[in-house]
Write a protein that binds this DNA or RNA. Sequence first.
DNA 1: TATGAATGAGGATTCATTCAT
DNA 2: CATGAATGAATCCTCATTCAT
Lengths: 202, 202, 202, 202
Amino acid sequence: MGDTDGTRQRRRGDTRQRIQDVALELFAEQGYEKTSLREIAERLGVTKAALYYHFKTKEEIIVSLFEDLTRPIEELVEWGRQQPHTLETKREILRRYGDVLQNAAPLFRFMQENQATVRDLSIGGMFKERMAGMREIVIDPDAALVDQVRCISALFTMHAGMFVHLELEGDPEDKREAVLEVAIDLVTQAHGGAKGSGDQTR
Amino acid sequence: MGDTDGTRQRRRGDTRQRIQDVALELFAEQGYEKTSLREIAERLGVTKAALYYHFKTKEEIIVSLFEDLTRPIEELVEWGRQQPHTLETKREILRRYGDVLQNAAPLFRFMQENQATVRDLSIGGMFKERMAGMREIVIDPDAALVDQVRCISALFTMHAGMFVHLELEGDPEDKREAVLEVAIDLVTQAHGGAKGSGDQTR
Amino acid sequence: MGDTDGTRQRRRGDTRQRIQDVALELFAEQGYEKTSLREIAERLGVTKAALYYHFKTKEEIIVSLFEDLTRPIEELVEWGRQQPHTLETKREILRRYGDVLQNAAPLFRFMQENQATVRDLSIGGMFKERMAGMREIVIDPDAALVDQVRCISALFTMHAGMFVHLELEGDPEDKREAVLEVAIDLVTQAHGGAKGSGDQTR
Amino acid sequence: MGDTDGTRQRRRGDTRQRIQDVALELFAEQGYEKTSLREIAERLGVTKAALYYHFKTKEEIIVSLFEDLTRPIEELVEWGRQQPHTLETKREILRRYGDVLQNAAPLFRFMQENQATVRDLSIGGMFKERMAGMREIVIDPDAALVDQVRCISALFTMHAGMFVHLELEGDPEDKREAVLEVAIDLVTQAHGGAKGSGDQTR
DNA sequence: TATGAATGAGGATTCATTCAT
DNA sequence: CATGAATGAATCCTCATTCAT
């Protein structure tokens, strides 16, 4: 008897993690400003003060989430920089970017829907950097303006992908693939490639 | 005699308008939640209570802006519904949509950057409807999934256009055209057309 | 043609009266504090400012109502003072008091239900005076304490009568009579009379 | 050492109680609407926000007072329901009711003087229920209308008792007894009994 | 690790009132 | 007679944050 089995017990040590989970859920659902620490604390069954033991400020919570969840983008950008700027590289970047977005969907949804707020949080700057990094490894600064736009559009398409799921019918996996295909098409065209779905380059 | 120069004078009758202007500016700049009525009032040189003479609530301010500025979208959708669903129609829709977006840029920027907030304001629903209308007149529900995505991507590309200006170098007008071209390309491809903005209506 | 028949027209000259009517209705229904001038104005279809043309303050509205509607009590008290302090006089006083209460029921309901508010309006003092007057002409200061209480109880019973209607079943007129009978019984007993319903004194 | 004398010290743990005390005092004195939380807080030497730590809303303060102080009525009603509906029972009910009223005098004064306000607070309904309960155990629904009124009058007389003290001279205890006697007389008469508080249980 | 109690700053909103027209 | 526009003061309430225990 006692705390032997973990069910419903104060799993000690993981509180920080639980705060992050609940916070992200609420931030994504309601927005940053509209989510109060009281709400987070209540949903966790702890006191507001407890949150302050784990995070110095409200902002630190979102910052920690951001840092934890966007590392894959940093890594992707770093990887991208080291690759030759070929079309195939870019395709691979988009594929990997798709995975990244899917894995941290709630955070990205949050970033997307709270841009105004995010802008003057410290993560605002970091996010801009990450995005600039992505642009850098996907856009060729010497290409024609239309082609640069095509690449940006490819990235936006990927982002849009997170919402497309809600507005279009069909199997989720199919939609994911369709989104990726359109994005890849766009960079392909930006590279002077023909339109159409995929195989012709291989 | 009297009010000859308008500087800082109580231009009577236009207060409502001025509130809307200042509000939109601040909402777009800082977000809805972070903009307080005190701030709006101060910048106008009036009391908070004066705002309440013209608008019953804070929300009513943004609603009024939304209604005033999105009427063109409604009209565009209505027009679109009455046209034959040809490729050329869609191209025209995108062209007009570009104009609409440009004319009400600050509002759209606001909507884009405050989605989480907007979602539970009454304009959230209205906005969704407008967007659904746009999708309806641009997407062919019987087309292949990829092509549907292409059309959504076209719309997102147009939206992205509002931000591209900030991140890409070059003449604004050129960028505008490039964005439009990419978007038109996307719907053209969705219609089975070749790449490039040629005249092939099918 | 024009304003010939009065239906739905701005009956000129009676605005003051209409303000009083609507105000009393709302004051009685919702209380003084919770009734705003805006509400009164709206229900009348005029501006708040219009009210100020007819009454200098919100308080003046209730004061004017009070003065108009409690004159009968003043008169009753005056009459009562000039009568011999017999039992029969008191009975007559209660009968007349019953009429007075019925005629200005909404005001008295208001006074009853807003005592705390009324207390520091100028009518607070006036009302106390009127009530003191009523006590004076009904209570014999030399009588035994119990009998004095009986007389006060008689007055309270009359007041209670305004609410009894809501809580007891039966014909309104019957209830009115029953209330009066009980009150009269009380002063009768206070005069050393026998208990019972009525006729034995005649 | 330390908190030896309690003057103006942060007597910890009793803040909630102190808020209730001060609030009741002010509510009874000035009415509910006219008493602001600022006033309560100031008089306690705490911040408005502190009140909100202990009570979620202003209304909750009065609700808590009401619940704490009217429990005795509930109990009395419950007791009354279980007794035989004899005259002697009713007399006992009135005696006990007198005690209850005296113990929670400020609250009842408040309820009496703020009926309009109370009506649309949640305690409005509760209070009506309590009063209905009292009526139920005192009134015989099969009795003649006059006798029912007599019983209601008895209850009102008890309530009036709280004010009689202010308007009649004499020893408080004497007045209390006189009020009780009149009320008991009324129910006695309602039972067909003779005047005067004799022992005739029927 | 956490809580209980509190704060200070600020939020939106409402109100009675004023006054030039 | 009445309105349109505005004000100043007040209201209830919420929030992120702190700190002794």
